[in-house]
Design a protein around this nucleic acid. Sequence first.
RNA 1: GGGCGGUUAGCUCAGCCGGUCAGAGCGCCUCGCUUACACCGAGGAAGUCGGGGGUUCGAGUCCCUCACCGCCCACCA
Length: 912
Amino acid sequence: MTDTTETTRQLPKAYRPADFEGAIYERWIGADVFAPDGAGSTADPSAEPFVIIQPPPNITGSLHLGHAQRTAVEDLMIRHARMTGRPTLFLPGLDHASIAAQYVLDKILAGEGESRASLGRERYLERMWQFINVTREVMLGQQRRLGASLDWSRLRFTMDAGSAMAVREAFYRLHRDGLAYRTEALINWCPGCRTSVSDLEVIPTPETGTLWTVRYHLLDDATGRPDPDAWIAVATTRPETILGDVAVAVHPDDPRYAAFVGRQARIPFVERDVPIIADPIVEREFGTGAVKITPAHDHDDYETGRRHGLPMLTVLDDAAAVVGTGTRFEGLDRLDARREIVAALEASGDLESSRPHELLIGRCERSRDVIEPRLKTQWFVRAAPLAARALEATRGGRTTIVPERFVKVWEHWMTNIRDWNVSRQLWWGHRIPAWYCPDGHITVSAEEHGPTACEVCGRPSSELQQDPDIFDTWFSSGLWPFSTLGWPDDTPDLRRYYPGSVMETGHEILFFWVARMMMLGLHLTDVEPFHTVYLSGLIRDAEGQKMSKTKGNVVDPLAVMETSGADALRFAVIHGATPGLDQRFGPQRLELGRNFANKLWNAVRFILGARPEGIATDAVRIAPDADRLGPAERWIRSRLAATVAEVDRGVADYQFGEVTRALYDGIWSEFCDWGLELAKVRLADESLPAADREATWWTLVEAIDTYLRLLHPVMPFVTEELWGALPHRPEDPPMLVVARWPVAGPRDPVTESAVGALVELVRVVRSARAEGGVEPGRWLPGEVFAPTSLAGAFDALRPALERLSRCRPLVRHAQRDAFLTAAGSRPGLSVVVGEIEADVALGEGAEGPPAAELARLEKELAEAERLLEAARTRLANAAFTAKAPASVVEGARGREAELADQVARLRERLRR
RNA sequence: GGGCGGUUAGCUCAGCCGGUCAGAGCGCCUCGCUUACACCGAGGAAGUCGGGGGUUCGAGUCCCUCACCGCCCACCA
């Protein structure tokens, strides 16, 4: 490390991120600075640790831009905390993503002519491990490339032994506490994935279907046979479910059907006679006002069936083919069956009508197949009591959600929560640790090898059968904040790093993941798993479209980083980050980041190259000599202090876009555009004592060092690289990554306003020159009248002001009369900026002020008059002066005086 | 059917607690190779802050309402 601390190094002329980003990451790893207790850590061990919880990405392929943006935000927070001297934990991990992974692997297998069935459970899982051994490296590599300062020594996976142990223990306790139960219930079945899915995984999709109206003949009370001339018409979008109908429901107050209630109707094909019942759930206006009830294949009907004690007849199997009906439709896929049933009804004359109908179809989030609700015996987690505790945590302020508006969404969901179906008929995942004995007794065990005997009847384990199902993938994800720290064991990590500080994730998985972590965490550990939930928005493409593989508009972060660098990507995505709001990403954004890095690079190159001869190349950094600072140097320091404060505020408020904006403006528009330009002149001024020039240089070093620290969490690579080339203090650590976060110094309002006025003068003179059509390269003499309060700053900065305004000599007059005499009536450009007036001579040969100059002055006058008028109107309003705060009124008066002065001066200039 | 978010220069967006807040980047126009940077520098044009009400001395900034776009939740078969 000594090479970077004790000597300043030469920087290559061009900023080429690819040349150093990888090497820098290696150096961080080599120095072991990411682990909270790593060899290179400079944290205060007694400080409160800062822990970021990163959603472990799904191990299904590669990371996309959304991952990159979130990782960037997380890394920003953790790097900032690390620099403040807190022990930090940023734990890397991957999620086995059971259903998503199986979906991907199934597709790959299909391409090879294999399938889940052809391989069998064992070989299928072997294939899965092979698959993820490849993808995991890709994904971890992407995180490294992005510069994520993850503690790799703590890498975890939701399918590792630690997670497995936590899953078993968690389920064991939930069951013990009466919060996990097994029952037959109507669940969402995906025929494509051949598994149940949770309510959240069913995506309501608007589609145009058909609404068929079908006649069910009433039974003749006398004969007990269907009456060909009496029927009740029901409307349905799924005629195949007729086979499972067990009732017809009408609204109890519907006069049309009052006489029907209590009678029987004959279901076609299955020739089943079912009751006509009354239930207020029926919408009288919809369809015919009579609803067929299929409790085993429809969520609403299931509830209705339960209310009325109706039988539940399953007529679709796992593949969604007709089963158990004893009809000729047996074995047909439900859609084929639907067609045939409609045709048969039409033939029999019982199809009254059919019309197109817009409806919401539940589709599988993964396979997009139509979800077919069906009865299954599954494990459920009782949600209400868990949700109550989660709500307590957010209401009590122990966990804060950022941005705040999501609290409402959270509350709504938590208060209407339904029990969580955790059984999945998949293979890739944690097997449910429940065993059943031949007598149907249930034994749940947290032991790795299962129970030794049935808990109820004592039968030996050899007679017990383990549940073939696995857990919903979110069950293990829900344990992530503590399962990764050794829970259920009472480990040092768990004590030190739990609960976490900030949990960052996309708002789309607020329910899937955040809610489950809260519920499980509170129940199992008795403490909320994190203090803050920071929700990010989605990354969209430049057109505002959601990025998706099928649309082909996904941006590969690796490719982006290859061309523009990780820093540019990080800057771009952080720049656009507003909590909870989506952002568009396009090439422009990226260029912004890259250009900024380039600017920074060149600024540092300039500073290093401008080192006064009296300072050795390997000089140890010293603070600039305060007695030798000029106005420009004091201005730089004061503006720097302002930027530090702004960045601090942005970080504290999670307004990361504000952080990048403050840095962009501070570094580019203030420090580079004015600070360096002013300093340049002083550094080159041989007439000044060497010590003055050295103080200037040390000021630049101090400023850029501070800016680099502030920017490090956003752009870690380029800042590390550049910082390494700067002279350092003896107490500085070898690398920026563990250097101390800056403390905002004092502001200097007097200097800020004086230099601000002079900067404005330069700006206005430049503008006047350009508008007046003066050749840019031409030096013009100028006269300036500045109030005595600005005299010191003006004189000190005169050489710089001359150079920047390209006016020489620039003569300052202390008296306005003298100024007016000197400016005289010669042809020239006149500017009025605040209390300063300047007149730039156009030189011999000029006939008079060019027409453009007059037009410019007139425009300025008109604008000033307009503003003055507005200010006067405001002050004339008695209500304003009476009710507005004194400071505001005072400010308005000052403004009025200023404007009046400016108007007067401009009029005077125009008269000449 | 509820709920939430967005609507600010041609484009992409900042504008936190109402009082120089009308801004930035890109694009556009005019200039410029001034020894850090053409991934640059200087200057410039450009918006009745979605519409309409209201509160206030004062409103992109608060309230109501409407419109359009987007998202989330929801048991109309």
